Amino acid sequence: MLHRILLLVRKTYICLLNNSTYLMNLKAPISILIIFFMFASCVTNKELTYFGEKEGDEALIQQSIKLNEKPYRVQIGDLLSISIKSTDAKLVAMFQPVAAENAAALQSEQSLYYNGFTVTKHGNIEIPILGKLNVLGYTLDEIEESINKKLLEEYFNKAEDLFIVVKLAGLRFTVTGEVSSTGIYTLYQDRVNIIEALASAGDITTVGNRKDVLIIRQYPQGQKIHHIDLTSVDALSSPYYYIQPNDMVYVKPLKQKSLGTGTTLVQSITTVVTVLSLVTSVLVLSRNL
């Protein structure tokens, strides 16, 4: 690649020498053109760096970590996986959406969709035998405690070993825009931050705008668009650093992509030299006509 660039530069230089008088008046415009392309087309290191730190940011990072330690609270449309276990297997089977022998089938995403518990628009889930339970705005631990209390009061003896686990049945989200692989992803984790979400999609491309990543989030009243600057350490304290179920992450393109001049210095030099060679050739041909 470098060899080809040098050849182009050499040819352009020879052409300029042979037509120096004619092209003398074009020096200033050509110089301006070169400078414009060099500065406008290259993607800087700052634009590619996540969480760029400044002096004194260490305390801010520690504070940001504490702010984001808040547990997730269940929203409308969430899909919950609820596991109830006890020494009385027959009694437990009454509260399961599928038979105990088919429990292994619950591990697939499709089975979780059909056998999980979806939070309705009224904020409820419906558990066999127990009936409706309001979970909107509650943490997973609080839902576990609520189910445990209701089962002990109505069906199980306190002496029996009752164990309940409530989890999100996979955190599903969409990543699109300037990433390596757009698509819908599901991560089986309690919490997923935006960097993990982008990593699932192969990370942001070189021409992706890390300064203004959009998060489209679902709310009872509709969708809202939020912005986060991933080049700043302030992103760690953003309420949108951790994504939520059904979030859509959109990465906008940088202006360098629309210019089409290349994203690295080598690519930009190649483009400038090519354009300059073309302009020179056209001017020389027009002079000889």
Rank of each mutant, 00 (worst) to 15 (best):
I65L: 13
A105D: 11
H122A: 12
K66I: 11
G123T: 06
K167F: 00
S146H: 09
V98E: 07
V119W: 04
F156T: 00
V166Y: 09
E145F: 08
S111R: 11
E153F: 02
E145V: 08
G123Y: 10
T118E: 12
K90R: 14
L67R: 15
D161T: 14
E69V: 01
I84K: 07
I76M: 08
Q107R: 15
N124T: 10
S83F: 07
M94K: 15
I84E: 04
A159N: 12
K167G: 01
S146T: 12
P128N: 12
P128R: 15
E142T: 06
K150F: 00
D78R: 08
E160D: 13
K149V: 07
N157R: 13
V119N: 02
L91N: 06
G116M: 12
D78Y: 08
S111W: 12
V92S: 13
G77R: 13
V74Y: 06
G77W: 12
A93E: 08
L168A: 03
E145I: 07
N134S: 05
G131Q: 10
D88W: 02
I125H: 02
P128F: 10
K149S: 13
E101W: 06
L67F: 06
T118M: 14
S111T: 09
S83H: 09
L136M: 05
K70I: 14
Y155R: 05
N148L: 14
L130F: 03
L106G: 07
V74G: 01
I82P: 01
